[in-house]
Amino acid sequence: MTTRPTQLDAAHFDAKARQWDDNPVFQERGLKIAQAIRQAVALNKRMSALDYGCGTGLLSFPLKDELGPILMADSSGGMLEVVAGKIAAQGVANMTPMKLDLLADPAPTQQFDLIVTSMTLHHVPDTDAILRIFHDLLNPGGTLCIADLDQEDGSFHGPEVDVHHGFDRADLGRRAAATGFADVRFQTVFSIAKARETGTRDYPVFLMTARRAGA
């Protein structure tokens, strides 16, 4: 599953970074996904985590007191500036921002017990490649948590934005299993309502959890 890279992504998110946390939908979505992860994964402070496509940290900040070190990775410098400011303002000791595009940059040298990513996968050009990278970055027995859109007709972003139009759960589950993940599970955790010409439309957001086989 591939599509052309969206070259404007970083600049787009840089421009929106300072106002990102003002959106109550983004806030609520982060909290709902965080709660679903809590219920699906036995979190503890010995766990190292990677939040890939972390944005302003709306997913990881609610989880920070339940985890060990968290690498906050994003390709948007503007988003990471906001993260760094929040880390400093709150005196957070276990979060580290890093500018990172796993399809272009060298992968981190460390491995993780948990990888979380929210509303990022549909912006990644090569789904199979990023799943392989996630698998390699996890410790044996580690868990991958992906929150993203169910497959839609392209109206969520509009035709001018070149991204995946969400994901078919069965297809994504097969791809994860082919990569080596086990215990692949899906649940609906949120729904985004958007006004369209034909009326308000809901776009469901799923959480996929999967485990790297091993310990």
Rank of each mutant, 00 (worst) to 15 (best):
T209H: 12
G173L: 03
P108Y: 03
D22R: 10
L207P: 09
L131M: 13
L67D: 07
T2Y: 10
L80Q: 09
L80I: 02
S48K: 15
P125Q: 08
E152W: 03
D65K: 14
L80Y: 02
G91R: 07
G53V: 00
A195C: 00
K99C: 01
F112I: 06
A36Q: 13
L114D: 14
Q187V: 14
R29C: 11
G55Q: 01
V184W: 01
T96P: 01
L114C: 12
N139F: 11
Q35F: 06
H157V: 11
M119P: 00
A84N: 09
R211E: 14
P140I: 04
R212W: 02
F156Q: 08
A10L: 02
V163H: 15
I146S: 09
N23M: 08
G53M: 05
K86Y: 06
A147H: 02
G78Q: 00
Q19S: 14
F167D: 00
A177M: 13
Q110D: 10
D14E: 13
L138M: 12
V82Q: 15
S60D: 07
P97W: 05
F186R: 04
E197Q: 14
S155C: 00
L31K: 12
A49F: 00
K64E: 04
A129S: 03
V205H: 08
K45E: 08
F181I: 01
V161F: 04
L103I: 13
R211G: 04
M79A: 02
G154E: 10
D74M: 01
K86N: 05
A10T: 10
T3I: 09
